[in-house]
Design a protein around this nucleic acid. Sequence first.
DNA 1: TCCAACTATCTCGATGTCAAGAGACTTCAC
DNA 2: GTGAAGTCTCTTGACATCGAGATAGTTGGA
Lengths: 165, 165
Amino acid sequence: MEDEVDRLVSAWRRERPDLDVEPLEVLSRVSRLARHLDRARRLAFAEHELEPWEFDVLTALRRAGAPYQLSPGQLLTQTLVTSGTMTNRIDRLAKKGLVQREPDPSDRRGVLVRLTDEGRDRADEALAGLLEQERAILAELSRTQRRELADLLRQLTAPFDNTPG
Amino acid sequence: MEDEVDRLVSAWRRERPDLDVEPLEVLSRVSRLARHLDRARRLAFAEHELEPWEFDVLTALRRAGAPYQLSPGQLLTQTLVTSGTMTNRIDRLAKKGLVQREPDPSDRRGVLVRLTDEGRDRADEALAGLLEQERAILAELSRTQRRELADLLRQLTAPFDNTPG
DNA sequence: TCCAACTATCTCGATGTCAAGAGACTTCAC
DNA sequence: GTGAAGTCTCTTGACATCGAGATAGTTGGA
């Protein structure tokens, strides 16, 4: 089946036959798919009255394991946002009672963000909903294909994830 | 090589051993990779003094072929943004002299957005720069692997691209 | 002990995006 | 032809994000 990127690539081949646009076959699909996923996730989370950004922060804390605490700095690196954004997010989540800010006992500059019981429950519910939806999207592929796809993607993400930049 | 999603998945397996988190192996990688690509693209375009959103609009027009005209509505479907956003983008591109708004001769509700000569040149330059950068990112993979990856991704994007939703 | 360099978090202003709805025009059934 | 429904673009207000800089605290060498 044809997709939008097939149309995009053939348009470029017509307009710029001098250029090799093969990279777009992979990377434009990644970008567009991510865009579609964002929308789908927004819908899935709406059932649990959570925004995608709230999910990102809550689940980062959830994954940390009891006592569900991380510093804002640790949350930054996991969520790929800037520090100003994270401060704002923590403020709003705290106001909703899903997280709590506490002073870091070992560094007075620092803060620890801790999941409340309600925050933990909301994260767990939303994760279950997300996985259900993602399984439906991935039903297009066989188990083997999903494995192949994950492995190929890992080769592309690893350099980004394992360098300081 | 391990990436951030491997760490994320193993954290979930430790914290929620009751859940099957296999879907994340694929879709979290897609989202994170898209995030990294956004940043990389921003850098590549900065050399041509273009923002990513400007590139998206200019190249959509460029791909349309001479006379490089599309309606705002056609631009919407290609760029996956809302109509309010597109109005704003066209305004700003017009102010910079990269596009021009013209009345649609066949529908008086409508407008046609047309690339100026400068807009066309800027789009061409930026595309060349982008392709160069993307080739570097994809150098991790063999030609065959890139083909496989593109084909697998197409299976996931096609349902989104070929349904009204 | 003191100071410079560094680190962690927060503040602030600018900006791009979205969602909802308004206004103008077109289409189609009757 | 006429009116209702549909379509296309633009307006508006709210909001999350970014980037740069400010503030407070820590660290290590002289």
